[in-house]
């Protein structure tokens, strides 16, 4: 089952194991410059508000009601990253493993393939939690992703439109598969608990304006981030007990009309952030194998393309910025696994 708690999706599988709980949250991010260079990880900002689509059924498109799920507000050209965490089994001192598929517009963000049932290892189309603490974008090369950036549907900028030629779905799709319980118990026998490193880390008469409401995600600037290879066997995952959620993206400009709530304030530009001397982050982990990028995703055009072609309003200024403070974080390094700017 999936619950919505404090703007987080909580996937729980009590029928598999009490510890099989996965938290997924969507966080606002500074947009990294789209200058072809690999940038450090941008700092975390607050969580996007999440709301049940059903609570605003009279004011959202019919397709959203059919998909179910939740919705969040994003400004055009705003960036998003996804944070993952799973519950720790107190008897084993480890966090319960999950395979998590992430897609935008039903295009898999790891493999670039169309949404499908189950899991595939060749090419791998999922991330493994807790090893993968976060996902900031499309896996385009080994050690490199292109940031998730919101664009209106129907303008040809989203990954979905570039690969399928259609703007049929938009939004984000998430599906989680827990590890089979007997596999978990065999791989992680009970022992004296030890400290783990914690990751603190959606119209009735206005139907002709619906395209202004719906957004999808497309590729923005590049950043250094590894998508880790699955260290387990495909048969270790419990394909009988997955849960999935459709996360719709509403343009922040109409969020208030739909929900009656104010949208989050506009994010600062990378340039202003860097000028303020605030830190960027580098996730340092040389010990685990990572995936090569997906060719389909590597060939995508930047969301800046349609703006330059004059098809849509240009995104907010996003000139290059040179981070002066880059903080290395990761397993074995001092400090916590957080991406919070401090001072």
């Amino acid at each position: 089952m999936i619950e919505l708690q404090h703007d987080r999706l909580v996937f729980s599988f009590p029928e598999v194991c009490p510890a099989a709980v996965l938290w997924v949250e969507f966080r606002r991010a500074l947009r990294v410059p789209d200058d072809g260079q690999d940038h450090p990880l941008p700092p975390s900002r607050e969580r996007f508000p999440l709301r049940h689509v059903d609570d605003y059924a009279a004011r959202v498109p019919a397709a959203w009601r059919a998909h179910g799920g939740v919705m969040l507000p994003m400004y055009q050209a705003e960036a998003l990253w996804i944070a993952f965490d799973s519950a720790e089994d107190n008897y084993r001192g480890v966090c319960y493993p999950f395979a998590v598929k992430v897609a935008t517009g039903k295009i898999n963000a790891v493999s670039g393939t169309a949404w499908s049932t189950g899991l595939r290892q060749h090419p791998q189309d999922y991330v493994v939690v807790p090893r993968q603490p976060w996902l900031d974008g499309y896996c385009v090369a080994n050690g490199s992703v292109r940031q998730f950036v919101a664009m209106p549907l129907g303008m040809g900028a989203t990954a979905e439109e570039q690969l399928t030629g259609e703007a049929a779905y938009g939004g984000l799709q998430i599906e989680a598969f827990p590890m089979k319980r007997h596999v978990f118990e065999r791989r992680f026998p009970m022992r004296v608990c030890h400290l783990r490193q914690s990751i603190e880390v959606c119209f009735c008469e206005q139907a002709n304006h619906l395209h202004l409401l719906e957004a999808g995600l497309g590729p923005g600037g590049r950043m250094r981030q590894k998508i880790y290879a699955d260290p387990y066997a495909l048969k270790d995952w419990d394909l009988e007990h997955s849960s999935r959620c459709f996360v719709h993206i509403a343009n922040s400009m109409v969020w208030r009309q739909v929900t009656g709530e104010n949208p989050p304030i506009k994010p600062p530009t990378a340039q202003k952030y860097a000028q303020a001397g605030l830190p960027w982050f580098l996730w340092y982990d040389e010990q685990h194998a990572s995936l090569a990028g997906a060719d389909k995703l590597a060939g995508l055009q930047s969301v800046a393309g349609p703006a330059q072609a004059g098809h849509i309003e240009a995104p907010a200024k996003n000139q290059g910025a040179t981070p002066e403070r880059v903080i290395a974080i990761g397993p074995g390094l001092p400090g916590k696994r957080v991406r919070e700017p401090k001072g």
Partner: peptide
């Protein structure tokens, strides 16, 4: 008593 996020037809 928990409210589940409803899954629909994709």
């Amino acid at each position: 008593i928990a409210r589940e996020v409803r899954d629909g037809k994709w």
